[in-house]
């Protein structure tokens, strides 16, 4: 199972990511990538969505309850649990 990292507010990168992400893959949103969670309602219906709490806070976003807000410790743990880890940009 793959961990997909979305780090930019780039619609094309997100589209490409969602086109190949399997149902049991996890999606990790960091940096400006977290804006996608505020603008793409369809993402909220997907399980296994994670985002860095501090990057959400820094951008003042209010997000759906289904997003798992995590810190770096859990981000590191996810990158151990999943293989490979794919960044989209």
């Amino acid at each position: 199972m793959t961990l997909h990292i979305v780090s930019q507010n780039n619609p094309l990168a997100l589209k490409n990511c969602l086109a190949v992400a399997a149902a049991d893959d996890a999606l990790m949103f960091i940096n400006d990538g977290v804006y996608a969670l505020a603008t793409h309602a369809a993402l909220a219906k997907r399980p296994l969505i994670y985002a860095l709490e501090e990057d959400i806070k820094a951008r003042g976003l209010t997000l759906s309850q289904t997003v798992n807000r995590i810190h770096y410790r859990q981000f590191v743990a996810l990158s151990c649990e999943y293989n490979p880890v794919q960044s989209w940009y």
């Binding site: 780090s7 960091i30 940096n31 400006d32 860095l52 990057d55 820094a58 951008r59 770096y72 410790r73 981000f75 590191v76």
Partner: peptide, 16 residues
């Protein structure tokens, strides 16, 4: 810093 994933990478490295 906030718009750059270099800071994310640094924090990730430190944490791991």
């Amino acid at each position: 810093l906030l718009g750059s994933t270099a800071y994310n990478a640094y924090q990730f490295a430190q944490c791991l």
